[in-house]
Design a protein around this nucleic acid. Sequence first.
DNA 1: CTATTCTACAACCATATGGTTGTAGAACTA
DNA 2: TAGTTCTACAACCATATGGTTGTAGAATAG
Lengths: 104, 104
Amino acid sequence: MFHALADGTRRDIIVRTMQSELSVSALARSYPMSFAAVQKHVTVLERAELVTKRPKGREQLVSGNIQVVRDAFGLLDRLEVLWRSRMSQFGEVLADDPREGANE
Amino acid sequence: MFHALADGTRRDIIVRTMQSELSVSALARSYPMSFAAVQKHVTVLERAELVTKRPKGREQLVSGNIQVVRDAFGLLDRLEVLWRSRMSQFGEVLADDPREGANE
DNA sequence: CTATTCTACAACCATATGGTTGTAGAACTA
DNA sequence: TAGTTCTACAACCATATGGTTGTAGAATAG
């Protein structure tokens, strides 16, 4: 699933389909590559369950799936916890986590 | 950088080195592959700045770097925000974010 | 009905990836 | 000094990856 996130085009597809449903061909028009290439990217994202497809007439509407993204937070959060426990062995956390408190 | 996270061995190396500094050869003993293979994984992680290496005598001590992990949160958080804005167009957020509130 | 659009999928290609073995040097150990 | 350990790096290999073009069918438009 991190593999699915490891490509710029795919990350962009996720960003766009997280905002609104888009057909595969609509997506394909946005990128400097063939329809088939974009189709493959969507397939990779679909297998990773980062997006879902819904047929509508002859189109397939692609929609971002937030659930698996949240799973990714899990791994990252785990790393954060491990790092903090290591830091606490030295009795000091040098850098505060910029995520906490502020909205950005 | 998601590419660096896209391999199970590398994710494990991150997890282990986030807890404590480990030499490349110490890491290599943990995996069913050659020293050179583990060495390559460490190099990939180093280029992505997910770990740092510190020489100590003839050893290279590998240490997880939390900063870039936090950068990954950035992308994920952005996706979360986009998804929420889409959901709000329908006036309802069906699933609450399990991250908020609870510690796990 | 005909033409167009959208999708699916196969075949193919160049390059990247993850693994291997082998060589060599630097740093410890005995 | 001699042997061992740790690292670096080159060369090589099989397979995965990201792209292409081409074919074909289903749905829509005219």
